[in-house]
């Protein structure tokens, strides 16, 4: 998921009359659910919007390693440690697919990383929250990956071929994470009073940040219309959020935990759960860089990149030497 508030590189949707022949042919393909591939013609704004969305998604996978890494060295059993290592390895792998998918649009990974480090690109707001107790790791798998899956299952039908295929593969791994996360928190919810307290604390803290992952309410979401027409975005923020809430509340109840929002109530008429709106001012603070961990997360990533410069340079220099020696030998 992990892509929020993606500004479509154009305001308003062009009518068919306003489109050029090329644009019309492109839109027809999208409308008929024919995937757009890297070699196909596409509007510049479509390309730019996708780069932004896929780049933000990739950055989220990479930064998302940090809150989980925070507990790898404190995982309580060998099995939990192995599961968490496998998960972060998957996340880094997702980052790699997504950067590669963005490269098919002509944007290099180095450039996207540079934009992230300069604060000119974002990653999902959720990773600016801390992981404070071990149950947070279960909750991240269950709620955060769970929310990501809701969004990404929809994105499997997105119009850009490489992105759609990446989503199909990523969803399989994310489903695994969500189940393992739920299993970890289940152990705690049904465990000792202290463990149950940790589980409740995690759900209370992460509930609203998780439902914020879908982005602002549709009425406030200014960039969606063109993205929907291009099928870069397939369902609206509120539709996806409702789907997540509906699937998650019975899971919280099964754990015997208190619901994290007094506004949660089954609405017979709508056939959905009602729930309170998150504090959107907090969301916009986090997006602007004022979340609890924004500064530390970015500092960590920039430091890792800067500290690693000599490694990248060294390996590149060696590859060049090897190439030169091979040429000399021929």
């Amino acid at each position: 998921m992990y892509a929020q508030m993606i500004k479509t590189a154009r305001s308003g949707v062009k009518s068919r009359e306003e489109m050029t022949d090329q644009e019309r042919a492109f839109q027809d393909k999208v409308d008929r659910d024919i995937k757009i591939e890297p070699q196909d013609w596409m509007p510049d704004d479509y390309r730019a919007t996708l780069i932004r969305q896929m780049g933000q998604h990739a950055h989220s996978e990479v930064v998302g390693q940090l809150p989980e890494g925070n507990w790898i060295t404190r995982a309580p059993t060998l099995e939990r440690k192995a599961i968490l290592l496998a998960k972060v390895q998957d996340e880094a792998g997702h980052g790699l697919y997504l950067y590669s998918a963005a490269e098919t649009l002509g944007e290099s990974r180095d450039e996207l990383v540079r934009l992230l480090h300069e604060g000119r690109m974002k990653y999902s707001s959720i990773f600016n929250y801390p992981t404070l107790n071990w149950a947070d790791i279960g909750a991240v798998g269950w709620l955060v990956d769970g929310a990501a899956i809701v969004n990404q299952v929809a994105l499997q039908r997105t119009s850009y071929g490489p992105y759609s295929r990446a989503m199909i593969r990523i969803c399989k791994e994310e489903s695994f994470h969500a189940r393992q996360g739920y299993h970890a928190i289940m152990k705690m919810a049904f465990g000792s009073p202290e463990q149950k307290k940790m589980a409740q604390d995690a759900v209370n803290r992460l509930w609203f940040p998780a439902i914020m992952m879908f982005g602002p309410n549709d009425s406030e979401s200014t960039h969606s219309e063109q993205s929907m027409a291009w099928k870069i975005k397939v369902k609206s923020n509120d539709e996806l959020r409702q789907q997540f809430v509906d699937q998650t509340i019975p899971q919280i109840e099964y754990l015997g935990l208190e619901l994290p929002d007094p506004g949660i109530k089954w609405n017979e008429e709508r056939g959905h759960y009602d729930f309170s709106d998150p504090d959107w001012s907090e969301f916009f603070d986090v997006i602007k860089g004022n979340g609890p961990c924004n500064v530390d997360r970015l500092k960590d990533r920039v430091k890792a990149w800067d500290d690693g410069a000599w490694v990248r340079d060294g390996l590149m220099a060696h590859a060049e030497k090897k190439r030169a020696r091979k040429v000399a030998a021929e």
């Binding site: 930064v63 890494g69 790898i72 972060v88 430091k303 690693g308």
Partner: peptide, 22 residues
Amino acid sequence: VSEWCGHAPILEEDIALANTAL
């Protein structure tokens, strides 16, 4: 090795380090 999580010089190395630790 797991202490490296998220701090490697390049993404491929993050994957390799997590894989080795695993």
